[in-house]
Amino acid sequence: MTGETAPNRAALPTLTRDGRLVVVARARRAEDYERVLDVLVDAGVRSVEVTLTTPGTFDRLPALIERYRGAADIGVGTVTALDQLERVIDAGAPYAVTPITSATLVERAVAAGLPIVPGGLTPTELFASWSLGASAVKVFPAGQVAPGYVKDLRGPFPGIAVVPSGGVDLDGARAWLAAGAVAVSVGGPLLGDAFADGDLAALRERTARFVAACAEGSGS
């Protein structure tokens, strides 16, 4: 199997795919999500990954999905165990993200029709997930490689869909997308101190720059 024709590969959700920008919202507590996500979505972000390292994320998830329905995909990240993935599936989240390479998680997501983006760094890790039917693979931590890594991967794996994550700043977002990444996953360089009661006007300005950069050359 080359991975190009993996059975039942779910496509990334339309908003995530078209926006080409996933904002990783790693809040201190789930009660802080809406204050920041309202600004992100209003400024044009179409995909937000809320993380299970934030206490209370599962309790808040149904309300977040409903609040931003039609405007932004609210995916769930830092999924590392099967019971967590089952809760993501039950909640009806549009996608899941895991920082690890796990056949168990990918196979379960594929069986449920849930788009999943598993993490890895080496070609062996990334292809293992891709060949099982992952919707895309997360190059993590992306700061350890260069955007040209996309071309390197596509030599042996022509159709692999790559999403870099970890330390991707504004210039990095442009470079990775120009190199062929299907989207970029961005956290701190965009969010800054937003979850520490930071300036939301400044957040809006940063968000607008990232959204514009990710729209460049997308045909939108």
Rank of each mutant, 00 (worst) to 15 (best):
A161L: 09
F140G: 00
R174P: 07
D32R: 03
V45S: 04
D169R: 15
V163N: 04
G159D: 11
P7H: 14
T104R: 15
A173M: 13
L85P: 00
A194F: 04
G120V: 08
T14I: 12
L64F: 13
F157T: 04
L12T: 04
E216Q: 03
I74S: 07
V88T: 08
R67Y: 07
V97R: 09
V36M: 07
Y33D: 13
D18T: 15
L40H: 10
T104W: 05
R69T: 11
D197M: 02
S47I: 11
D197R: 03
R46L: 10
G113Y: 07
G188I: 01
V41P: 10
L37M: 15
A30W: 02
W130G: 01
A43H: 08
G19E: 08
P62G: 05
F140K: 02
V186R: 06
G217H: 00
V48M: 02
L200P: 11
V137T: 05
V117C: 00
T101F: 05
L170P: 06
P189Y: 10
V22N: 06
G217R: 00
G119E: 03
F195D: 12
Y33S: 12
I160N: 00
E49S: 05
F58L: 11
G119L: 08
T2V: 09
A10R: 15
L82C: 02
A173L: 12
S131W: 01
A112I: 07
V36I: 12
V145T: 08
P94S: 05
T54S: 03
G113Q: 09
L203H: 03
L114T: 13
G113W: 08
V97Y: 12
G92C: 11
G166Q: 14
G113K: 14
A202V: 04
T57C: 01
I65S: 04
E125N: 01
G192T: 01
A178F: 04
K138G: 00
P7F: 12
S129L: 04
A202N: 07
K138P: 00
L200S: 04
V97S: 00
S131C: 02
V163T: 10
R69Y: 09
G77A: 11
N8W: 06
G92R: 05
A91Y: 11
M1V: 02
A111R: 08
G217E: 00
I65V: 14
E86G: 06
L191V: 00
P118G: 12
I116R: 14
Y33K: 07
D199L: 03
W130N: 01
F58Q: 05
V150Y: 03
L177V: 04
A194C: 08
A215E: 03
S129A: 12
D18A: 15
W130C: 01
P156N: 05
V36K: 05
V41Q: 08
A72V: 14
A173T: 11
L82V: 12
G219D: 01
